[in-house]
Computed example of a mutant assay.
Amino acid sequence: MNNIVLIGFMGVGKGAVARELSKLSGRFAIDGDDMIESLFNKKIAKIFEDEGEETFRAAEKNLAKFLEHNVKG
């Protein structure tokens, strides 16, 4: 089985689609934004405000690399 990765602009429904795919396929859904919020212990908007977009994008990139190497579908 291969992983399914959803990408797109903020607020377009990636999370809702991921949850539905998870139900239909029996796969586990991982929300990258939720993981980053947990890492920083703050919401995305607050990360942007306090740390800047560059820090958030670096966290996204690091998370993507981690998931690519450690999560097998």
Rank of each mutant, 00 (worst) to 15 (best):
M1R: 09
N2M: 08
N3Q: 08
N3L: 04
I4N: 05
V5F: 10
I7F: 11
G8I: 02
G8V: 01
G8E: 01
G8H: 06
F9T: 08
M10F: 12
M10Y: 09
G13C: 03
G13Y: 07
K14I: 03
K14E: 03
A16M: 06
A16G: 06
V17M: 10
V17Q: 07
A18F: 03
R19N: 12
R19W: 08
E20S: 10
L21M: 07
L21S: 00
L21P: 00
S22Q: 04
L24M: 14
L24W: 01
S25L: 14
G26N: 01
F28Q: 11
F28N: 13
F28A: 12
I30K: 02
I30T: 02
D31P: 04
G32C: 13
D33R: 05
D34W: 13
D34N: 14
D34A: 15
D34M: 12
D34I: 13
M35V: 13
E37G: 07
S38W: 13
L39Y: 14
F40T: 07
F40Y: 14
F40C: 02
N41C: 08
N41G: 06
K43E: 10
I44M: 04
A45Y: 10
A45G: 12
K46C: 05
I47K: 04
I47P: 03
F48M: 04
F48S: 05
F48R: 02
E49Y: 12
E51K: 13
E54F: 11
F56P: 04
R57M: 04
A58N: 13
A59Y: 06
E60Q: 05
E60G: 03
K61D: 09
N62R: 13
L63P: 02
A64S: 08
A64R: 11
K65W: 00
K65P: 00
F66V: 03
F66Y: 15
E68Y: 14
E68I: 06
E68C: 13
E68D: 14
H69C: 12
V71A: 02
K72I: 15
